[in-house]
Amino acid sequence: MLNSTTNNSSTDKKDFEFYGYTSTNAWKILIILDELGLSFNYHHVDIINDEQFTEEFLKINPNNKIPVIIDNTVEPPITVIESGAILIYLAEKYGKLLPDNKTHPRERTEVLQWLAWQISTLGPYLGQLSYFGYYCETKIPIAIERYSKEARRMFKVLDGRLSTRPYVGW
Rank of each mutant, 00 (worst) to 15 (best):
L129P: 01
N3D: 13
K93Q: 11
L87F: 09
W170Q: 06
H104V: 01
Y135C: 05
R152G: 05
L122I: 11
K13A: 14
F53I: 02
N8I: 00
Y42P: 01
A151P: 00
T164P: 00
G169Q: 06
L98N: 08
G95R: 12
L112S: 10
E82I: 03
T11M: 14
K139D: 12
G160E: 13
E82S: 08
G84D: 10
S9V: 01
V157I: 10
D34Q: 11
S120Y: 07
F18V: 10
R165K: 15
N72Y: 03
K149T: 14
V111G: 01
I47W: 00
T5V: 07
G84E: 14
R108W: 03
N72Q: 06
S120W: 03
P141K: 13
P67D: 10
N49Q: 13
M154C: 12
L30W: 03
D12Y: 00
G133L: 01
L162E: 02
I48L: 15
E145C: 02
I69W: 14
G20C: 10
G169K: 04
T73H: 15
D100R: 03
N61A: 09
Y42H: 00
K28P: 06
T79Y: 02
K14Y: 01
L58P: 02
E150L: 13
K139C: 05
S9H: 08
E92H: 04
K102R: 05
D100G: 09
A91H: 01
E56V: 03
T22M: 11
D34S: 14
N72P: 14
Y167M: 00
E35W: 09
K102P: 00
D34N: 12
D100M: 04
I140W: 05
M1E: 13
N3Q: 12
I86D: 08
G37E: 11
Y19C: 06
N41I: 11
T138C: 01
I60A: 04
Y131V: 00
F155N: 09
K65C: 03
V68K: 00
Y134L: 13
A91C: 08
L36S: 10
A26W: 01
Y89H: 05
E92N: 15
E51I: 04
L58I: 07
P67V: 08
E107L: 05
I60Q: 04
W27Q: 11
R161S: 09
P77L: 06
L112V: 09
R106D: 11
R146H: 15
A26D: 09
L126M: 15
K59C: 10
S163W: 05
I47N: 05
F155M: 12
L36R: 07
P67M: 07
L126D: 04
G20Y: 05
L98H: 12
N101S: 14
Y125R: 06
G20N: 02
F18K: 06
I60E: 02
